[in-house]
Design a protein around this nucleic acid. Sequence first.
RNA 1: GUGGUCGUAGCUCAGUUGGUUAGAGCGCCAGGUUGUGGCCCUGGAGGUCGGGGGUUCAAAUCCCCUCGAUCACCCCA
Length: 428
Amino acid sequence: MKTFKSIPGTFDVLPDGHSSGGDTVAPSRMWRFLESVVHDTMARYGAGEIRTPILEPTDLIARGIGALSDIVTKEMFAFERGSTHYVMRPEVTAPVMRAYLQHNLAQKGGTQRLYYIGPCFRAERPQKGRYRQFHQFGLEVIGSEDARADAEAIASLRDVLSGLGLQQYTLRINSLGDADSRPAYKQALVEYLTPMADELSDISRKRLESNPLRILDTKSEKEQALLKDAPLLSDFIDSESRDHHEQVKAYLSDVGIDFVEDPFLVRGLDYYSRTAFEFESPLLGAQSSIAGGGRYDLLSKEVGSKQVVPAVGFAAGMERILLACAAEGIAGPEAARVDVFLVALGDAAIDWTFGAASRLRAQNLEVAFDLKGRSMKAQMREANRQAARFVAIVGDDELAAGEVQLKDMETGEQSPVRLENISDRVKA
RNA sequence: GUGGUCGUAGCUCAGUUGGUUAGAGCGCCAGGUUGUGGCCCUGGAGGUCGGGGGUUCAAAUCCCCUCGAUCACCCCA
């Protein structure tokens, strides 16, 4: 008999946490805890939830993220049916911008703050903190180039992390300048690195031609040493971007957000300009980035807008955040407890449980009972396992008297209670 | 796509220089207590030792192939 397993890089979320290989999948209540913190935090920022389709036009993603980016060239789940090209979204920023333009949300006047929670898909080889189906939440602040928008995106993300109880994370921030300032820097960097090209890795050498900025975030210590005296992007950015950057930092300091400036921070997606930032946890192994984002004033025109629509946002990796929570010992809310577990003795009592549970549930109690006709001992054990607060024991005598033996599972105290009074006693 | 490590029960793992019917702990089920959970005691279920091939009188153990998992590179959340 053939058995089936979930596809590599995907996983089931179960009521209890479990290990999937060496990795740990958080219990579903922990996922819900994270989601509720996101919803609550975003509400405080006046953000509205947006839900966009998993499937998007392939061109939207290719144009938005950059046709030459790794994501587009080798990591997309894309297919064709009829004459339509579909991708399973690898990120959500381009889809949100698509929706913004499609529905003419600019017509609503002010800045749009849109947040999302949902799955994304990339055809990468899985490893700790990296999956083929992974989940992101994010915020996009669309329609403003004000530095407060950048600071607000960062602040809301910080609020989510601290709302969860996370302590060990760092924020790195940089400015990429505008579209005009980057070519000049790019050229300077190439001029600096070309004499030492022999010492670079194969990949970095190729990037020297294709995408030199990405050499900056190499993990190789040797290359980091070579970069020590490299020209800095900050010396090349235009004065407006520099002012903008200073303002963002001032706003962050205003609200007590710590950050470190990292002149080498560049982001992997082509659409970023000016502000770029990244939150990292030291507890996650190689995939240390738990969230990243920045300003993407260039995106709107890439995906078909006639005007520039300035925007800034972030995307956060939920799996990585949950791994960080686990590493910091954050367990989230306690597992649900059953209010009353019905223990039935004899056929008449077994028949009684179904209707009784229904009536108690109608009174908003969490009720459970055995479905296998097992012994009393087994039923008690099951009640214990479900952390029942009370057990209602019913046999022929109790049925005849119209009452149950109600036992408090913590104190062990037990007394007869009329059927109609169970709810009051449990809620008391 | 590239490299390292690892595949024995639901989970975590033992298993000697190849040698009878493959083990433990946890978990699960039942009994000890014919109507009372947790603790304790006893018993039970549950494995094609990832799969295929080879060497051998004999393979979980040695060899080859294959599949899978995992970590890392790359890239990103």
